[in-house]
Amino acid sequence: MTAPEKTGTTTSMAGHEQIPPDLYRRRRADRSYRMLGALITGYERLSRYSWRRRPPVVAVNRDLHLVVDEVRQQADEVVSLRLVHPRGHTLPAWQPGAHLDVVLPSGRMRQYSLCGDPTDRHSYRIAVRRLADGDGGSVEVHDTLQAGSGVTVRGPRNAFPFVTTERYLFLAGGIGITPILPMVRTAAARGVDWHFVYAGRSRESMPFLDEIAQLDPHRVWIRPDTHYGIPASGAELLEHAPEGATVYCCGPAPMITGVRLDLPASRAEALHFERFSAPPIVNGTPFHIDLAHSGHSLQVPADRSALSVIREHVPEVAYSCRQGFCGTCKTRVLAGEVEHRDHVLTDTERAENMMICVSRATSQHLKLDL
């Protein structure tokens, strides 16, 4: 009979495996390891039991049904609306720069910056300038919403976050005051170094001047075009920046463009901006899109975005910043190749999705899950 080889497993003459010796040549398993093995086995069994009985995922309804508590004229063609819960419930918290998705009575969804007090958990305030030649949302707000009107909102969401730093320059143009005003108040409350330039066509067109008058006058410059004859250049606005300041800018496209061009020559170090209009399309080419659910077949010209064309036929399509930063208009692509121009999607997300506010097609046709 051949003696067993000296391997890691000792075999008896009956051919059954025995427990191998441990590092200390003991044949009996250590008690702590036996207990650990029992715990692991029990956990695996319990996990299988729990998995079989895990409740199904239930979709969360994030709609807030609010009531217009007050409508106030803030400037020529600008009204503010105070929104409250009909039963006085506390509202979700928000930070400066946040906005609401507001579902209007017609079904249109529009985005409006929160311009009230972030510490007030029982009301939201938005402000809307009437645009007679717009897409109808602002006109609907002015003509149909009044005290007692019900509105559905979603959010708050923030595509323009307010970062913490030691020095700020705030620049607002016209209705661009809405996200900037809570930032200015927050900076003042924190006691940091801040300066604020508020530009507009005329004082009559500039909302919230009465509230701004309560701020430190040595840190605020009101600059209506009617007093100076022309709009301010980027360099003129940036003259008020403290050394190393972070700039927050919201206003019309020419104002933002001027600030971006002149920033390198200024004392400021960083710029955050938000447009209320879509950015200009550069090097655009026309392409065709098919909407799978609505059945629309649409042509997107070289100088327009897919979002703007789709909204003419599907007005309820969700969108927010229109700059490719926030992710609101992410849409699944069913067929075609996309030219991604956004700043939010990961490579994995881009394999199946596009931001219809800024991205375009490299193929002649796209089919979207809309």
Results as ranks from 00 to 15, higher is better:
V309M: 12
F276M: 11
R267Q: 12
S80K: 15
S149C: 09
F160Y: 04
Y168T: 11
H365Y: 07
F208T: 03
E166G: 08
R201K: 10
R31Y: 03
T246R: 05
L131I: 15
V309W: 01
R130E: 12
R219Q: 15
F276P: 13
T90H: 09
D216S: 10
R190G: 12
V58W: 02
P280S: 09
C321W: 00
E312H: 05
P217K: 15
P161D: 02
T9N: 09
A278Q: 15
I289M: 11
G97D: 06
D133V: 13
N283R: 15
V192M: 01
V259H: 05
D133Q: 13
P264R: 03
T165E: 09
P156D: 08
T7R: 11
H343C: 10
M255N: 07
C115R: 06
A235Q: 09
G37F: 06
E140D: 08
G97Y: 11
V128M: 12
D101Y: 03
A270Y: 01
S123D: 10
L169A: 05
H218K: 08
G244L: 01
G244D: 02
S50G: 03
A265R: 09
G174D: 02
E349F: 09
E211P: 04
Y112R: 08
D262C: 06
R34M: 07
G251W: 04
D347N: 10
L114F: 07
H16D: 11
C115Q: 05
L39N: 06
M206P: 00
K367P: 02
V338H: 11
Q18T: 12
R72H: 11
T90V: 11
Y43Q: 08
L64W: 00
S149Y: 05
H218L: 11
V163R: 14
G15I: 10
L238M: 08
A98E: 03
F170H: 14
V68T: 00
G258H: 07
H16F: 14
E337H: 12
W51P: 00
G295Q: 08
P207R: 03
D347G: 13
F162W: 11
H343P: 00
G137M: 04
R82W: 02
D69R: 14
T7W: 04
P105E: 07
W51G: 06
A132E: 09
E269A: 15
V67D: 13
A172T: 06
V67N: 04
F208G: 00
S138L: 10
G148H: 07
P301L: 00
